[in-house]
């Protein structure tokens, strides 16, 4: 019996599952660096985060929405991975459970599941934890390559924390004792390969860029968002740096430190929460860049990537409405 169907009769190999798998693969190098740096606790954090995200998704879909399970589409795994990447290694397990609940149930399933959420679920989870438990969320472990079982945990401030602190210490009263000074800022090479304190996934620029290149080759993402995001942050901080010659505006430090590269390659390129057209994506990325710089330089928090992306997520439906592709044949003469 011959089959009848409408055109087209062939399809691209890349389906949703393949895309999600590629993203997981692209995240692996950064995960490895995180585990290498922070040892067993990082591994536990990553596994807990993934497991709890998948669990929450399964529970909501099966028992709340009463639909067939959607955990096979890898999206919960990605959310879990990204959430873990945005957490410090020392975070207690119960906080991860709360964070993943916020990410999956509130950030994603409440909007209707994959493809319908407005905000990046992993960032929703992170920001919730960040605001609720600021102490635990800013306990940055120092990397130690020879101590996998975490026999000797030392904590310290992140690069951005130090930069922020310079600002504070320059004023008359110093707030805390034993503040780190500029000498504790790691050099560029250590920041690039990831031998520095911070969240599990954000430390190594090298590993993240490798993942990004993999995604570009697989055509999962386009170059626009990472380029314009990183570019705008670099541009604005160099302008500030040139104008003031102040080390806290050092553009390369800003590029390599904090969650900027993780955000630019993996969070700001999330399909669902970003605009659909190239033009819209560029505007989105520029907005993210400007907001990140503003929060980093003038905000209360040392890091602004997650807030910047979440704020721009809220704008992406609006951007989609006003910036779309030019229809063929409507060129103005």
């Amino acid at each position: 019996m011959l089959k009848v169907s409408t055109a087209p009769h062939m399809f691209a190999k890349q389906d949703t599952n393949a895309i999600m798998k590629d993203v997981v693969i692209a995240l692996l190098p950064a995960a490895c660096v995180g585990i290498f740096n922070f040892g067993l606790t990082a591994l536990i954090t990553i596994i807990t985060s993934i497991a709890s995200c998948v669990m929450w998704e399964y529970l909501t879909v099966r028992y709340l929405l009463k639909k067939p399970s959607t955990i096979n589409d890898y999206s919960a795994i990605i959310t879990g991975l990204l959430l873990a990447f945005n957490l410090p290694a020392t975070i207690p397990v119960w906080m991860i459970l709360i964070g993943s609940f916020m990410a999956i149930v509130v950030g994603k399933m409440a909007f209707g599941g994959l493809g319908k959420n407005v905000f990046n679920p992993a960032l929703v989870g992170r920001v919730f934890l960040f605001i609720s438990f600021p102490v635990q969320m800013t306990m940055w472990m120092k990397p130690n390559w020879h101590d996998f079982f975490n026999r000797d945990i030392q904590t310290g401030a992140t690069t951005l924390g130090i930069l922020k602190h310079i600002d504070a210490s320059s004023s008359a009263t110093s707030l805390t004792h034993g503040n780190p000074d500029i000498s504790q800022i790691p050099d560029y090479w250590h920041m690039f390969i990831g031998y520095t304190g911070g969240c599990i996934g954000e430390v190594s620029a090298l590993a993240l860029i490798l993942g990004g290149i993999y995604l570009l080759i697989k055509k999962v993402i386009t170059w626009h968002i990472p380029f314009y995001y990183l570019g705008s942050v670099f541009l604005f901080s160099s302008l500030m740096w040139l104008a003031t010659q102040d080390i806290k505006f050092d553009p390369i430090t800003h590029l390599l430190s904090g969650g900027l590269i993780l955000g630019a390659i993996f969070m700001a390129t999330d399909y669902t929460t970003t605009p659909m057209t190239t033009k819209g994506k560029i505007i989105f990325a520029l907005g993210c860049g400007i907001l990140t710089v503003i929060i980093r330089f003038y905000g209360a928090y040392p890091e602004g990537v997650s807030f910047a992306i979440l704020i721009m997520n809220a704008f992406s439906p609006l951007i989609d409405k006003f910036y779309y592709t030019r229809v063929y044949g409507t060129r103005k003469k």
């Binding site: 949703t16 669902t272 659909m276």
Partner: peptide, 9 residues
């Protein structure tokens, strides 16, 4: 479900 990837556009 549509994942809003924008590939069609």
């Amino acid at each position: 479900d549509c994942i809003r990837c924008g590939k069609c556009v």
